[in-house]
């Protein structure tokens, strides 16, 4: 996040690329957050399905927001790299090393989080709920 606050954030290229690549991911990530908040708020009504639904939406929100955050950080690095190559002496920054080291595992982690979250939310639709008090079942 350091690169975001220093160089990358100010550049027009960063914002145009961020809008093109990351903006389509934002609405669905917000839906996951809304899902998480609504299921937490209505957890009593959901009964037995609440824990599965909250867990599922939490994983989906984590995957969605995490991927947007990682994407923005990667874009800020790219911006930095473009600036570097225009100078006479290109050098490998610490950010690029972190990127090469973490990009594969993080990508896989976000995919797994997304799939487990989707499976949990799917299961939550079918999990029974607590019969309401005062109502014969």
């Amino acid at each position: 996040m350091i690169a975001l606050t220093t160089g990358g954030l100010m550049s027009a290229v960063f914002w145009s690329e961020a809008a093109r690549l990351m903006w389509p991911r934002v609405p669905v990530a917000l839906v996951f957050v809304v899902g998480l908040l609504v299921t937490i708020a209505l957890r009593r009504r959901l009964g037995a399905g609440a824990r599965v639904a909250i867990g599922g939406f939490a994983l989906l929100a984590l995957a969605g927001l995490g991927r947007i955050g990682w994407g923005l950080w990667t874009l800020s690095l790219w911006d930095e790299l473009v600036e570097m190559t225009s100078e006479s002496e290109p050098r490998q920054s610490a950010g690029m090393e972190i990127y090469h080291f973490l990009n594969g595992p993080l990508d896989l982690a976000f995919k797994i989080l997304y799939l487990v979250g989707l499976a949990c939310v799917t299961a939550a639709v079918f999990v029974g709920r607590k019969p309401r008090a005062g109502r014969p079942s």
Binding site: V34, A48, V125
Partner: peptide
């Protein structure tokens, strides 16, 4: 992206509506 938003919004609605009380296979 629009399809995902609509799909997940419907999924939230389905989770909140849920199975009928009393007919569920798992009951508390």
């Amino acid at each position: 992206a629009t399809g995902s938003v609509v799909g997940f919004a419907l999924l939230i609605a389905a989770v909140l509506t849920g199975p009928r009380a009393g007919t569920a296979g798992r009951t508390d």
